[in-house]
């Protein structure tokens, strides 16, 4: 599948944004960090800013962005529509909780309820994002049980790394978050490896024999494509460029998205405060690079059944 930059940015930025928002809302509702207005203000601005930037970016690849409002209408059948609704509904809950934290200086009682609702809606939104891909039957590398957990845990992991950096910068490190971050990284690492193991062994959603129904005559192969130059389907679904670098790119993902952030998050538990802050901050650009490449691979390595009609050996 063609890896559109707007969609890569959307899924990674909004994933991190909702992950951070989830943790802020949950930790705030549980009364862990004191309702410091600066921490809350910067935290909510960053979380909602990332989510909003991602959502706006996703409209850039639309043919008619001015009609984007229509996309919230079909939530009964469409995961994309559900995602839009969930994302919009998250705003009022998050803004109410942020108001309580930043302006009123309170995160308990009814404010905590708004926090719990916000956290739940963050989970729902990321589930919808993952299901957009996991529900597409023609793409076996998306239509499997590993995709949704990967989206959820990567969102939690990136959110945790951001929150840890924020807490350290504001001088209010929390053992809960410091402990959660390496756990989330290890979980995401294992899930990504399981996903890659699955995609490397899956036989495809269909075969050229079932796509043409000619299998009873023997092995089927394309003799002539219908068109001489690439059409929309080949451009969008038949993306091949740089798949040859997939193995190297996977190693880069392992290093930047998982290994470096894990090492830094463990180091920040042991070293003095100043060095710990540097380590936590350094983990942010590392994980950003790693997750963007991870998402690029998620698209570039995905194979669509329609490519079987254009000579693909498997899809």
């Amino acid at each position: 599948m063609h890896p559109a930059y707007s969609i890569i940015f959307f899924t990674t930025a909004s994933g991190a944004g909702y992950g951070l928002l989830f943790l802020l809302a949950l930790a705030g509702a549980a009364g862990f960090p004191p309702a410091d207005p600066w921490l809350g203000g910067v935290g909510f601005a960053l979380a909602l800013g990332l989510a909003t930037a991602g959502l706006l970016s996703s409209t850039f690849h639309l043919g008619h962005p001015e009609r984007a409002w229509r996309a919230i209408s079909q939530w009964r059948s469409s995961w994309l529509s559900r995602e839009g609704v969930a994302a919009l509904v998250t705003y009022p809950a998050a803004l109410i909780f942020a108001y309580g934290w930043v302006v009123e200086g309170r995160t308990g009682g009814l404010w905590a309820l708004a926090g719990l609702v916000t956290a739940a809606l963050c989970v729902v939104t990321v589930i919808c994002t993952g299901m957009i891909y996991a529900s597409l039957k023609p793409i076996r590398r998306w239509n499997n049980r590993w995709v949704l957990p990967n989206y959820l845990v990567l969102s939690l992991m990136t959110g945790a790394i951001l929150l840890e950096a924020l807490l350290i910068v504001f001088g209010q490190p929390l053992p809960v978050v410091a402990g959660l971050t390496p756990v989330a990284i290890v979980a995401a690492w294992l899930l990504k490896r399981a996903y890659w193991r699955f995609v490397d062994s899956e036989p495809g959603a269909a075969s050229v024999e079932s796509a043409t129904g000619l299998g009873n005559l023997g092995k089927v192969r394309l003799l002539e494509p219908p068109n001489t130059s690439e059409n929309y389907l080949q451009h969008e679904m038949g993306y091949q460029i740089a798949r040859k670098h997939a193995a190297k790119l996977r190693r880069i993902v392992l290093v930047f998205a998982f290994a470096i952030p894990l090492a830094l998050s463990l180091a920040s538990l042991l070293v003095p405060a100043g060095v710990a802050a540097a380590a936590a901050l350094l983990a942010v650009p590392s994980v950003a690079l790693g997750v963007v490449i991870e998402r690029w691979l998620f698209f570039a390595e995905a194979r669509h059944a329609v490519t079987l009609y254009y000579g693909a050996a498997a899809a």
Binding site: G63, S78, L136, P138, A205
Partner: peptide, 27 residues
């Protein structure tokens, strides 16, 4: 008139029945 040109329908079709019109911005 209601299509936003998100292309998701073409991803959902295994048969390649839908083609995006880049100039009109609709499927």
């Amino acid at each position: 008139s209601m299509c936003i040109g998100c292309k998701l329908c073409s991803w959902a079709c295994p048969y390649g029945a839908r083609e995006y019109d880049q100039r009109e911005g609709v499927m």
